[in-house]
């Protein structure tokens, strides 16, 4: 093999090396380490060395009502946030796509802007918006004699967080969907219009099928992101009231870094990982068919 040929074949790998190193050091290895850890009882507070306990940590998770509550809170968040975000992003993308080229850049930037704000800042500001006594939302509602317990009612707190999340994250999927809409050949719409298809039918039979791969991508990314929700909750409610918004990642964080129960924390992390994997595969299947 000549040197030139060698390089042509293997130079690609050379470009992969930097990321491969990072991937191994910060993802693959910790992932494997976490899996091993999840079968050990290791409590940092105790001088006792880590001790192999089999599936005890997993068993504890399934028996714990705190784990169940946290899992349920995560599901509730995902069930509300993911469809709403994708749906809203699609609506906005359609709207922005319909305006003239010159204005489009402005709207795209405007809707994307919140995503640029860091979660700590966004969380802090929205906590003030939601604040019961002097918050902005309740100040607006005051003339009608309403005072909404945005964050203090166990039934409402999670919805408030979903609302905030929608504002914060809708821009990302919107930009991706907008790019997807651009890819759809104009001729398809023209042909359909000539055949007499109305706007709804053009949307239903051209836009949606053509957009399917992009929608799939956006939906999966959103579901994965929703399962991992933490920042908003931690900044706005700290899991309250009465732990109604304590999501799984927060519970894992508290278990590992407040109670220093590393093995149990690792086991719950793997359960969360399996959840995310399951739903991602399921969704992939559902949207790939037909």
């Amino acid at each position: 093999m000549t040197a030139r040929r060698f390089w042509r074949i293997y130079s690609g790998y050379l470009f992969l090396v930097p990321y491969a190193v990072l991937f191994c050091a910060f993802l693959a290895l910790p992932l494997g380490y976490g899996l091993v850890l999840s079968f050990f009882r290791w409590e940092m507070l105790s001088p006792a060395p880590p001790q192999f306990v089999g599936v005890d940590n997993y068993a504890e998770a399934f028996q714990s009502d705190y784990f169940r509550n946290a899992l349920w809170a995560t599901f509730r968040f995902t069930l509300m946030a993911a469809p709403l975000t994708v749906g809203m992003a699609l609506l906005i993308a359609l709207g922005v796509n319909a305006v003239s080229d010159k204005r489009r850049a402005f709207y795209r930037a405007a809707y994307f802007a919140p995503a640029v704000v860091s979660i700590s800042v966004a969380g802090l500001v929205w906590r003030f918006f939601f604040q019961g006594e002097f918050g902005m939302f309740n100040a607006w509602l005051e003339p009608w004699g309403w005072r909404v317990p945005w964050l203090t009612d166990t039934r409402l707190a999670m919805k408030s967080i979903v609302f905030m999340t929608l504002w914060w994250t809708v821009g990302g999927p919107m930009v991706v969907l907008l790019a997807g809409l651009h890819q759809i050949p104009r001729q398809l719409y023209e042909a359909a219009a000539i055949d007499g298809a109305n706007a709804w039918r053009r949307f239903r039979h051209i836009t949606i099928p053509q957009l399917r791969p992009v929608l799939l991508f956006v939906a999966i990314m959103n579901i994965i992101g929703s399962f991992q929700v933490f920042g908003q909750v931690f900044m706005i409610t700290r899991g309250g009231p009465e732990q109604s918004t304590r999501v799984l990642v927060q519970y894992i964080y508290e278990t590992a870094f407040t109670h220093y129960r590393m093995g149990y924390g690792a086991a719950m992390s793997w359960l969360l990982f399996l959840c995310i994997a399951f739903f991602s595969v399921l969704q992939f299947r559902l949207m790939r068919e037909r």
Partner: peptide, 12 residues
């Protein structure tokens, strides 16, 4: 849990 751990690992 703490007690079991201490007994198992000969803790403090």
């Amino acid at each position: 849990r703490q007690r079991r751990l201490t007994e198992a690992g000969g803790g403090p």
